[in-house]
Amino acid sequence: MNGYNFAYLDEQTKRMIRRALLKAVAIPGYQVPFGGREMPMPYGWGTGGVQVTASILGADDILKVIDQGADDTTNAVSIRHFFQRVAGVETTTATTAADVIQTRHRIPETPLRAGQILVFQVPIPEPLRFIEPSEQETRLMHALEEYGVMHVKLYEDIARYGHIATTYAYPVKVDERYVMDPSPIPKFDNPKLDGNPALMLFGAGREKRLYAIPPYTRVESLDFEDHPFEIQRWEHACALCGSDHSYLDEVITDDQGGRMFVCSDTDYCQSRRGEVA
């Protein structure tokens, strides 16, 4: 595209983000501050993820963008078009064909392979933020590894509901050190963070933070001995592909209370139905 540098960001900005990414990888789960730029889309639409993607993306890369698992929702379509225009890269909806996958709030059902990079869009990177509003305090809590309050928060769920009611953005501990917000992915996806062969990068544009989970890193979801971590389960199978092991969205089909459950990962669902040409 004329008038813009490759992948929109100027080289100086890319270098700054690249240096921050290397530190993020060197200290898994630690949130590295970076000079987040204003992007041609509003905060909350994935400006952090877009800046990370723009800094790593190459002309030969094949890009996939998903929003809640779907390739065809507004956020995914507009970000995919953005990179088609400013970087001229090839895009795909197939998880297996992609080199870089930018995601909002899901990890694909198809297992990722070594060499792939998953870029998460993160609204609020600080897992302790709703407990402690002060950045200075939360930074100190991370430094001192003072994470007791996080368990108190989960325990309050148990006291109130009888089980841990946190269902998304479920806090994890990375490599036995940093407590990290895995972005608002359903806790169904948390086990996929552990020992994943792909590199996972997280970008928060408004909060100007980057963090990372290198491949094959131990990632544990916080829990208690008597209330172990559990993922969601459904009584239904996907109404389209019949999958009984993927994350399902509930879709209202009429105003008579009709509804169906379908896979949130559209690529996975379609390839199961043999619709991918």
Binding site: R18, I56, P215
Partner: peptide
């Protein structure tokens, strides 16, 4: 080719640092 060469090199450095 600064934009593309540095991108290619960075991905190799990122790969080296993450593995």
């Amino acid at each position: 080719d600064p934009a593309h060469d540095s991108q290619r090199l960075f991905r190799q450095i990122l790969g080296a640092m993450s593995e």
